[in-house]
Design a protein around this nucleic acid. Structure first.
Lengths: 198, 198
DNA sequence: AGTATTTCTTATCCTACATCAATGCGAAAG
DNA sequence: CTTTCGCATTGATGTAGGATAAGAAATACT
């Protein structure tokens, strides 16, 4: 099922319902179980995954074997390795289903076909790229300047729902700290009457 | 003078000399003195600056007043705040001339005009975006996983010439550490017979 | 030149976070 | 039911890098 994606295109790309039906006729969706890998590091990333339902994470593994979560992908998010997909290079990261997850498989051919036919789609795509850059830039800024606590507060402000759905060690990995440190940060916040979901 | 930019377009964008002459006829260049600002945080970034000669840096300032260098722009690099330019929002960062620097001013109108007329230019532009993303992603990975020493080694591998041209406190700022820490790192490396430029 | 200012180093102490190890605890699995 | 197993917490200790201060060296300024 690709209902969410169609809705997303309608709202964000400014395409008509008819255009969307034509465009998405050949698109495939696929469901993965919790723990399944949609992409293994070293493979070439052939798709952008649009999350219809569920939750993905993309992450790298460093030389010491430690995981670093790059991105979470809940409903209506795209998860992919753009560099790998665009340059046809081996991907540095893996993509895994954190929950039972249904995704729409979007390949480069679909993007270029859609961009060629619908200028609105092209603009939408360009905007997504620009947004991605903005988001990456913001993350770099945080990593350069903010303490673990500030990064955590930023996280729960940005992804309030994920704070509940995701195990804390994953949040810690995303923030670039250990689960123990995150636990201490949370303890401190609790002590100072901080209620994340009040 | 915009000779470097023309050469750059010829080599990277696959345009003919004639096409380039037509395209760049209206482009302006501008020279800044050391310490001059090309963009102040809070302004909307109207241009991408292509560095013909000299060296730029872009940086943010956090709540505590500390600078964080986002990017260096030596010859043949672009420096801009893509988010600000694309979304017409106030920029988070400032751009300053580290040396006497001559830049080509490239505005959004130029990009869209060139893209409309020359498909090669459009592809070139898209590729630049993708490269930018790759570079940002790589930096995030380093910040998440690498020690100060590894980040410094990565820096001198990536920008060997900058290591000489740029004051060390700027390199430290780029790496997300203090100048004192960088000094220590360098001392350690020197002790272990590391010669950056042997 | 000589003075001032910025940059780099060095030393000391300090803090945020990592590492290691033990315990608790709820959910899944036998 | 009870035995894992994964995850979270807590405590003890270690360490990379920060803060501060002061001196050396390099640059710029007159």
């Amino acid at each position: 099922m690709i209902e969410q994606y169609k809705k997303f295109l309608q709202e964000k790309a400014g395409l008509t319902a008819a255009e969307i039906e034509t465009l998405t006729a050949t698109l495939q969706s696929k469901t993965f179980h919790k723990g399944d890998f949609l992409l293994h590091a070293g493979e070439v990333c052939a798709y952008a995954f649009f999350v219809e339902k569920g939750l993905l994470r993309s992450f790298t593994i460093d030389e010491t074997g430690k995981e670093h979560i790059i991105q979470f992908g809940p409903e209506n998010w795209f998860v992919t390795d753009r560099s790998s997909a665009y340059f046809h290079e081996a991907s540095d990261f893996s993509i895994e289903a954190v929950e039972e997850t249904t995704v729409v498989l979007i390949d480069a051919a679909f993007i270029s076909r859609a961009s060629a036919v619908y200028p609105n789609f092209m603009r939408f795509n360009e905007k997504a790229l620009q947004n991605h850059i903005r988001q990456l830039q913001k993350r770099i800024n945080l990593l350069l300047s903010a303490t673990a606590e500030k990064r955590y507060l930023d996280f729960i402000r940005l992804y309030p729902d994920l704070t509940l759905r995701v195990p804390q060690w994953m949040i810690a990995s995303y923030l670039g700290i250990t689960p123990e440190s995150l636990s201490r940060v949370r303890k401190e916040l609790a002590k100072n009457n901080f209620k994340p979901h009040s």
